[in-house]
Write a protein that binds this DNA or RNA. Structure first.
Lengths: 148, 148
DNA sequence: CCAAGATGGTCAAGCTGCTTGACTATATGG
DNA sequence: CCATATAGTCAAGCAGCTTGACCATCTTGG
């Protein structure tokens, strides 16, 4: 594979990622959740199952824990998450989604489904599944960084 | 396709994009081009063929022209590009890559090839080409935004 | 041909989100 | 029980973007 092809492929990946991020965020905002940034969505993904600590979140987002702490503070102010005492570690706090946070997460899922729908119409559901499989094999643990 | 699958697919795309951006940037830095950010690479792509104006660049990067102007100023200081009078519009300036800028672009292509190589080994060259084709069909003109 | 508005570019000031550094409180291991 | 590591926060600073203002040059309609 030639270098120029590699660049073209990279550009394609980045274009898809950019469009996807933009569409999902717009979709979430359109559903009435104002003031949310893509980074918040990335945080929600990590918080969704059982909550997480600030340090977990920082590692997940690829930022310092101070930055993660600020992000949590903002989400608390907006009512999307709340800090609870950690069940086994008195130093730590468990950040969990509020009901509003869950609603926002569901909105993001809907927005993602809307964003992906044109792909299915274009390529067919089977091809999209194959695409997803390929991507997961390529970078199963790629960084979810809010900023480049 | 269910909402949860759409989210999984989105996460996969973003993970691949994140890893790719990181690897290319590291590869460029490793080849001796210091102080370059991914955003610079996105600018180089637009400048490479025949140069571009600040306004073109701003549109391409999805930022204000002031921001694009600052980015150009930085690239000029580092010796990657130079401002030339525009051939047909005395208001505008044509930003073109210097020899150093071209060298950096080639380094980025090499780094991209390095980053993509594992994919080829994992999926085979044919599958990767198919992947590229699919991505280009999904978002042929997706935004190349340096920041989310 | 000229006046009026549109467009290309830059300067300046401000804001946002990140970083580094310092600190307290709690956990853990010898 | 003390030494060190870890969770979290506060504070200050910085980088990169934005908005607002401005000048130079172009384009257009009368």
């Amino acid at each position: 594979m030639q270098n120029s092809e590699a660049i073209a492929l990279s550009a394609a990946v980045l274009a898809v990622a950019g469009e996807l991020t933009q569409r999902i965020n717009e979709g979430v905002v359109a559903r009435g959740f104002e003031g949310v940034r893509p980074a918040h969505g990335f945080a929600f993904v990590r918080l969704a199952p059982d909550g997480a600590t600030v340090t977990d979140l920082a590692a997940h987002l690829g930022v310092t824990k101070q930055a993660a702490s600020q992000l949590v503070e903002e989400l608390v102010r907006r009512g999307y998450v709340e800090r609870r005492p950690h069940p086994v570690d008195a130093r730590a706090r468990l950040i969990v989604l509020t009901e509003l946070g869950w609603a926002c997460t569901r909105a993001a899922e809907e927005a993602a489904a809307d964003a992906v729908r044109p792909w299915v119409e274009l390529l067919g559901e089977g091809e999209v599944r194959v695409l997803c499989d390929r991507l997961l094999r390529i970078a199963p643990y790629g960084p979810i960084r809010p900023t480049w």
